[in-house]
């Protein structure tokens, strides 16, 4: 198993900068620090943009009504919903996608884990991922699927990292599956289990 990592790894998702599109309607899904990306988007958009837009915002765990939600609320979105976390926002996103019409531009922003969940929900609703706008804001902590036991470990920040399900020590690869919404983790010391490399905090 290669440990070589390349700057432009072809399966690793790349994120852009949200840009207001010419569209009939807009669906924006944001998590945590993605709030600022939404502000930046609105600042670039025509005046009637927010009135044609729905915003689903996951403010982060254990926050009741933080200043970010307050600021977003004031932007005048046609519909505005808050959720505690990205995972909690997903059922609401599925509901919005069920009612969505073609010609609605979809904008996704937040940390790497949140983007994984949002893109996965959109593709499950029949949208091609190439038509989605994404912008990364916040943590680079990864969702990781253990290739051995198939369990998904959330918020992985170290290299290597332990699988939260089977306990194997995993190399967190750049190889990424959009269908699963996770990076691949592969046992790092299979050839010699006594060789335990130190963990480094690299996905922050």
């Amino acid at each position: 198993m290669s440990t070589v990592q390349y700057a432009d790894f072809k399966s690793r998702p790349f994120y852009g900068v949200l840009k207001p599109a010419s569209a009939v309607a807009h669906l924006i899904v944001a998590e945590g620090e993605g709030a600022q990306a939404v502000m930046d988007l609105i600042a670039k958009a025509p005046a009637d943009f927010a009135s044609k837009a729905t915003l689903l915002y996951a403010e982060g765990p254990y926050v009741s009504e933080n200043s970010r939600s307050q600021a977003l609320r004031e932007l005048g979105f046609a519909r505005f919903h808050t959720s505690a976390t990205a995972a909690a926002a997903v059922p609401r996103l599925h509901g919005a996608l069920d009612r969505l019409r073609m010609g609605t531009e979809v904008y996704l922003t937040g940390n790497e884990s949140a983007l994984s969940l949002f893109v996965k929900a959109c593709t499950e609703a029949g949208l091609d991922y190439q038509g989605l706008q994404t912008e990364h804001r916040g943590s680079l902590a990864r969702r990781m699927q253990c290739v051995h036991c198939k369990g998904i470990t959330e918020d992985v920040t170290t290299q290597p990292a332990e699988c939260a399900h089977c306990g194997l020590l995993l190399l967190v690869r750049d190889h990424y599956s959009r269908r699963i919404g996770a990076f691949q983790g592969v046992n790092i010391n299979a050839e010699d289990p006594s060789d335990v490399p130190p963990k480094e905090e690299i996905f922050r």
Partner: peptide
């Protein structure tokens, strides 16, 4: 890769 930890 699924059973790499066994054949590795």
């Amino acid at each position: 890769p699924e059973n790499y930890h066994q054949w590795g």
